[in-house]
Nucleic acid binder design. Structure first.
Lengths: 340, 340
DNA sequence: CGGGTGTGCTTAAGCGGTTAACTCGACGGT
DNA sequence: ACCGTCGAGTTAACCGCTTAAGCACACCCG
């Protein structure tokens, strides 16, 4: 089946390709009657402009890129990305002429290399960057090559607009909630320390611990994988005077830790309360269901696209604050044990 | 930062753009010395051909498409897609000039519409189709418009090459394994009946049940969501002379069902054995860890890309059999209860 | 009735590559 | 010395679309 070009439409309408182009792009230069006729014919014949040809003249590719750089093992199970993609796609549906380009890289260097390649090949008009580090080199590279970008995470140097959410208030709320349940010994199993949001939460946690005058607290770092969550749990549960509540930075670590606790004969929530800083169906899939902070990840995807569109339209955009995570108490949290 | 074009390279090398093109594409027409020099300059200056310009002349976009059509709710948690994407990306890494275009649609019509659009816009060179139905209309549409495609699922009309795996033998093995553990009453919670692989597994299950002369069996259909798995479990567990083992068509339903069983005070595996027809880290994340069939989904992604590349290179490809799922016995299966 | 002024379209150049066709020397054979 | 051949480039057309510039015609005004 032959693909139609603009000249097929021009022939059918009895006008030049230029006129067709004006008609289709809503530009002046053709009469209302002609415009109508061209539009009708193009629609009836099912013509769509070639993205390649358009990209060449407009220097816009009509695609935005997302690069995911986590080990395949974690990727498969981590609901974060698919939720994000859902949000991105939902926002993109408003403008079907834009598509999403996805890449999975093996490391940060490959990620940067892919940005450079995409830019040089004019494959994407902009990108969404996730897992922002403190002093992330990627934003520098993107600014240097001039590839429009929006990052998910705390505002950094200011070169790249960020979609961020306040973690301090929810952290305060979560610690307060656990304190109200009688917990005086709370641990936190964070994500990798290189991530900016990890550090912010670390700080917020420390502050909340002080505010509530807890007896003891501790922060350890994992890598979002189930293994690291389980390992952290085993270590925490082996301590004397151990924690009675643990806040995990994602759902996978929380679930895995809960399994580890069960194996050690520590019952949740009677002897140990568990909170996940990431809500997904996973948290409701297990028993006890896991108390979690809903981060509205899908919404982050929507905001990221809107911000990127703004950059593409007017050349710049400011940081965007997303709604703060909200605590969803479920069965994995309960009153602190009297004698842990 | 200005993007380089082929004429920048031509200028730097002191030759015409035509010569640069010949040099870069390994075509005759330039001396070895010139080729060397051009290659070196292009590399040093970091030039990459514009995909748009290339697409225009070669009528190849250098991208392949994947459309996912499942509710956002299921998407986020279903490890299937990310595993598939991992495989696709791994295979694409061999040829960095090809990118992956991802779309999430709301229903099948939107999916078909997107295929048509992508084709008309020359956005992708080929697509990978998942969740094949019996007599799937999508393969017809793709064949009609001539968009190269590879499907994941049982071979159908033959218009589109399929990457498929035998489910019969593993089903036989699984039922045999449960029978050996003393189970005489086995249920199966399948995916939606419209999927081709669901029907094949239904048949295989029925046959295996006969082979092993089970006392009783039953197949009910869910929709891969946790809710449907839990609902099915509750219904099955409420029956008199209920099943002592259940095989689920995916991990999400299996996990959810296990949670429902726990809520009903039915212990796994003492009173109920659970098997998931899909292995992911999820199955190892919960306690008891879930016995599952590893379908090598990542491998399916790799095979799909290889097959698609074959179609793009030589115009056609045959069906490809992927390795059969293998049973990974874990803690969710055990000896049948003497008195269920 | 000549000259400005829109209107509605066509023409053609250009986006960044690819490639068929052509040019220009050098070389070899007779 | 002349012609044919070949290697190494160059030139220019083309892919499908956009858009500045051009052009023909109708209309209005003094």
């Amino acid at each position: 089946m032959k693909r139609l070009t603009i000249s097929d439409i021009a022939d059918a309408a009895g006008v030049s390709t230029g006129a067709v182009s004006y008609a289709l792009n809503g530009k002046p230069g053709v009469s209302a009657a002609t415009r109508e006729r061209v539009l009708e014919i193009a629609d009836r014949m099912g013509w769509r402009p070639s993205t390649a040809a358009r990209a060449l003249t407009r220097s816009r590719s009509g695609a935005i890129g997302l690069i995911v750089d986590r080990p395949a093992q974690v990727l498969g199970i981590e609901p974060f990305f698919m939720q994000l993609v859902s949000g991105i796609e939902a926002a993109l549906r408003a403008d079907p002429s834009t598509a999403l380009m996805l890449a999975v890289t093996e490391d940060r260097d490959a990620e940067i290399e892919t940005y450079r390649r995409w830019w040089a090949e004019r494959r994407v008009d902009g990108v969404i960057v996730v897992d922002l580090h403190e002093n992330d080199i990627r934003t520098g590279v993107l600014a240097e090559i001039g590839l429009p970008a929006v990052a998910l995470g705390y505002p950094q140097t200011g070169e790249v607009p960020c979609v961020w959410a306040d973690d301090a208030a929810p952290m305060e709320e979560t610690v307060g909630y656990l304190a109200a349940l009688g917990h005086r010994r709370i641990a936190r199993v964070a994500g990798p320390g290189r991530f900016a949001h990890t550090l912010r939460r670390d700080e917020a946690f420390t502050r909340a611990v002080e505010t509530h005058r807890l007896e003891w607290s501790k922060t350890v770092h994992g890598d979002y994988s189930g293994d690291s969550g389980a390992r952290a749990a085993r270590r925490l549960l082996s301590e004397r005077d151990r924690a009675t509540a643990v806040i995990f930075d994602n759902d996978v670590m929380a679930l895995s830790a809960m399994a580890a606790a069960q194996e050690m004969g520590v019952s949740v929530p009677a002897q140990l309360s568990i909170v996940s800083w990431d809500d997904s169906a996973l948290c409701r899939l297990v028993r006890p269901a896991v108390t979690a902070l809903d981060r509205h990840i899908t919404q982050h995807g929507v905001l990221a696209i809107e911000t990127l569109n703004e950059i593409l339209a007017v050349g710049a955009a400011g940081h965007v604050q997303a709604p703060a995570p909200i605590l969803m108490p479920r069965a994995s949290t309960g009153r602190a044990p009297l004698d842990p």
